[in-house]
């Protein structure tokens, strides 16, 4: 809250008030231009649709498409601290950046191979638990239960609390001497763990916190999917003598697939790129043991000023994610029902 004084709030509101007429004028200009283009020059019957879409398209172009292509441009540049304002770009530099991504250590003692393996393990373990635990809780909550809304609210709570607060709170709970995790371990006769010193246990604690954060989302998605499955299917299956497991495998799972596939794909992308939990808990330490691809990229770009290298590195990440998501969609057949 530092600095959030009444003066600062008024100043911010003042800036907003100044900005609003400019934004409004910009939208009017875009609309008029689109209208003129569509109605007077192209003479299309979809003029209204284009006029309505135009500001959104301009926003997407400015905030997503332009930065993406600019990043591609930087990937072929030698922009760094010493060439910050005087960098140049060429295909040769781009190729060298690409070679560097796979041959030069991204961090001090960690290369990209280790980071890829660690990120894949991190993503797989997290998403596996997000989906299985989320589905399990979703199915439980879909049954007739007393105080169902109370359970639902409690289970959604980790999702509602900002990630920053959750990560920092859990960080304290992993303290060697005063954290409750070690206190519990000691009380059941186990040795306390040095979470902050041992890279393996640090990573385990990060995974635990991310599972804690991610399960409610999958639970809500599953619950929504389950509520859309007609009860008749289960009734008919019961008449045919199908047990709970058969009903789950033959009715619940196939009918949840159109919902779970994109949700899982989103989960993969989010977890693959999860920055907050790792950075807030250990800043990639101890001994660089919790760094994954995305946190290492942040370190390379913003702490070591390797902008050209970092931009190429981010392109490599993009291609990897695109590949993983495509394979996943193909295997899971996520679009099957939609296209059929």
């Amino acid at each position: 809250m530092s600095g959030l004084t009444p003066d600062a709030i008024m100043l911010g509101l003042g800036e907003l008030v100044k900005l609003l007429p400019i934004a409004f004028a910009l939208i009017v200009v875009i609309e008029l231009f689109t209208w003129f283009l569509c109605a007077k020059i192209i003479r299309t019957k979809f003029t209204l649709a284009y006029v309505m879409l135009a500001p959104g398209i301009v926003g997407v172009m400015a905030l997503i498409v332009f930065p993406f292509f600019y990043n591609m441009f930087l990937a072929f540049s030698n922009m760094s601290m010493t060439k910050f304002l005087t960098f140049s770009a060429s295909l040769q530099i781009g190729l060298q950046n690409l070679i560097d991504v796979f041959t030069v250590p991204v961090l001090q003692r960690t290369n990209i191979g280790t980071l890829i393996i660690r990120t894949i393990i991190w993503t797989f373990v997290n998403v596996f638990f997000h989906v299985t635990l989320g589905m399990f809780l979703g199915i439980l909550l879909n049954r007739p239960l007393k105080l169902k809304n109370v359970y639902k609210s409690l289970l959604i709570l980790p999702w509602a609390v900002p990630e920053v607060i959750t990560s920092l709170t859990w960080r304290n709970e992993f303290h060697y001497q005063y954290g409750f995790v070690n206190i519990i371990l000691k009380s059941i006769g186990l040795e306390p763990i040095m979470w902050f010193q041992d890279p393996f246990w640090a990573m385990i604690s990060c995974i635990f916190v991310n599972i804690w954060l991610g399960v409610p989302f999958m639970m809500v998605i599953t619950l929504g999917g389950l509520q859309s499955i007609p009860q008749d299917y289960y009734d008919v299956a019961q008449i045919d003598g199908a047990g709970g497991w058969k009903q789950f495998v033959n009715i619940t799972l196939p009918l949840l697939r159109p919902i779970l596939t994109p949700a899982t794909a989103l989960g993969i992308i989010w977890t693959f790129n999860k920055f907050n939990v790792i950075y807030l808990m250990y800043q990639g330490g101890p001994i660089e043991g919790t760094h994954i691809l995305i946190t290492a990229m942040f370190s390379a770009i913003f702490e070591n000023y390797r902008y050209g290298f970092g931009a190429m590195y981010s392109l490599v990440l993009f291609v990897m994610l695109l590949g993983i998501s495509s394979i996943y969609y193909k295997i899971a057949g996520g679009f099957k029902e939609v296209s059929e």
Partner: peptide
């Protein structure tokens, strides 16, 4: 000098490894 930054980064994990007895 800007060389101090990579020097810090080089020292950090090794110092942590010593303090962890690794």
């Amino acid at each position: 000098v800007p060389e101090m930054r990579p020097t810090w980064d080089a020292m950090r994990p090794e110092m942590q490894a010593v303090m962890a007895g690794k």
